[in-house]
Structures are given as C-alpha cells and as structure tokens.
Design a protein around this nucleic acid. Structure first.
Length: 248
DNA sequence: TCATCCCTGTGG
DNA sequence: CCACAGGGATGA
C-alpha cells in the first residue's frame, strides 16, 4: 500500500484535511497546515507520513485501506488528505483504524520480518506461547497478521498450537525461510483481497494473493499438498486454519 | 495468558 | 438472530 501511494504523495503538499469520523478529530489541530510529505514509509503495520517536524501515523487495523484518486472513493471515508494531484482517503467501515501525529515515532515493535532473521531461534526459544500467537505478537516480530501467520506455518509444516520454544532446529530453519517467502510472495501479488473486497490497493486494484492461499479461509477444502481436509480452530480468539497432516 | 471491548457489516 | 471478520489495547 505504501509503495503504491508513495509516488503520489512524496514531495507533495497537503492542501487540506477532512475528518469525517469524530474519533479521528484529535489529529486536526496537531496536523497544522501547511505540511509537505518528506517521505512515506512503513514500520510493521504502521504507515508513516514524514512531515519533517512531525509524523502522521496511520494504522489500518482490520478493515481500513488507503485509497488514492482524484475523486472520492465509494465506501466509508473517514479521513481525506488532499494533495495537488488527488487525495489519499482512509476508507474504514469498522472505524477501527487509528491515526496520530507525533514529533517522533517511537514503537515497541519487534524486528522486521525480512532480511537476516538470525535472531529468530533465540527469540523463539524464550517463549512458551503458541507459535502462531508468537508470530502475530507485534512486539516479537512486526508485521505478521492472521492470514500470513496461517500461511507461514503451513509452509513451514508447523502446527499453530506448538509452543514457540518447543520447535526443533529444523523447524525454526523452515520458519526462517517461510516468513519472508510468504510475505514477499504476498506483496508481489499485491496483497490479499478476500471475497468481500475490503482490502484493495491504493488505486482500487485487487491483491491476487487470495488465489495462492493454501489454508487460510479454506476450512473443509483439501490441503493442496496432501489432500487432507483443512481444519479451522480458534486460537487466541482468532480463526486458525491448518492442515492436520502436513503441520505437526 | 485469557476474555472483553472497540466498531460495523455480512453471511449463514 | 448469531457468528465472525485482514488488529490490538486493556484489565483480570
């Protein structure tokens, strides 16, 4: 989403801000204009508009997306940033998304899930959490959500309930491979637009990773690897999909 | 480590 | 009507 939005907003001045959700109103006084976007980046699931002397931080949570266009998108627009060439609109039907303006963005997020993951074995070993919850714990490792946690564990052949600290050296190695593999593949596919079409790219395009999902949302369907029925369970209150034969 | 809450919408 | 949904903060 950041990659798609970046060319439209970096170096551009925010001409006006419209807030259409009272929950988001507090940012208006702090987002004093004029302001120019020096850079657009991401840390974990946070989207960071660097405005030089402050940073606008967006988190889309469950149902949010950022839509770019010259016209207002259809849907529940909660916040609009108008630029010379168009607008960046926060569409968020469930209103769970959050915004903040800070002088300096500080976080308690774990390392990014890319690059050298040599720190992973020791970090996993310290925890008895179910490995799926560990992967989704943003303080442990940043950026992995429910869909990709399921897909990562399938690829690694590890059951979601396994305590993080119980993984063998081999299993950790498979995880080390699966984490960036799945995420990079999903990003290349433009993300995961499910049947409801809630998530879409900044200009409305569908993310095609949906067609590459192995287990997420596929309860009762045959495992693409072994044919066994995909199971759905509840873990940490979240729907959890796995293959009972391939993951142990 | 859990249940609960925040919100709204959709589908069974 | 109830269950559930790409997330996370909070309090028990």
């Amino acid at each position: 989403m950041v990659r798609g939005l970046r060319p439209h907003v970096v170096g551009k001045e925010i001409l006006s801000v419209q807030v259409r959700d009272p929950k988001l109103a507090p940012i208006v006084p702090t987002l004093a204009l004029p302001a120019t976007v020096a850079s657009l980046s991401r840390r974990g699931k946070h989207i960071l508009f660097d405005l030089g002397d402050r940073t606008l931080v967006l988190h889309l949570r469950m149902s949010g997306r950022l839509a770019w266009g010259t016209r207002e998108p259809t849907g529940k627009v909660r916040l609009s940033l108008r630029f010379p060439d168009g607008g960046a609109h926060l569409v968020d039907p469930r209103r769970l998304g959050t915004t903040a303006v800070v002088e300096r963005f500080v976080d308690e997020l774990g390392p990014e899930p890319f690059g050298d993951l040599a720190w992973l074995p020791a970090a996993l070993a310290r925890s008895r959490m179910p490995v799926k919850l560990w992967l989704m714990d943003q303080k442990k490792i940043a950026g992995i959500g429910n869909i990709y946690a399921a897909e990562i564990l399938f690829r690694a052949g590890i059951a979601p309930t396994r305590p993080a600290g119980s993984l063998s050296r081999k299993e950790v190695a498979r995880l080390e491979d699966a984490i960036p593999s799945v995420l990079e593949r999903a990003i290349a596919a433009g993300g995961t637009t499910l049947a409801d079409g809630l998530y879409r790219g900044p200009t409305g395009e569908n993310g095609e990773f949906r067609y590459e999902l192995s287990v997420y949302g596929r309860e009762g369907e045959p495992c693409p690897r072994c044919g066994a029925r995909i199971e759905r369970s509840l873990l940490g209150g979240r729907g959890t999909y796995s293959c009972p034969r391939c993951q142990s």
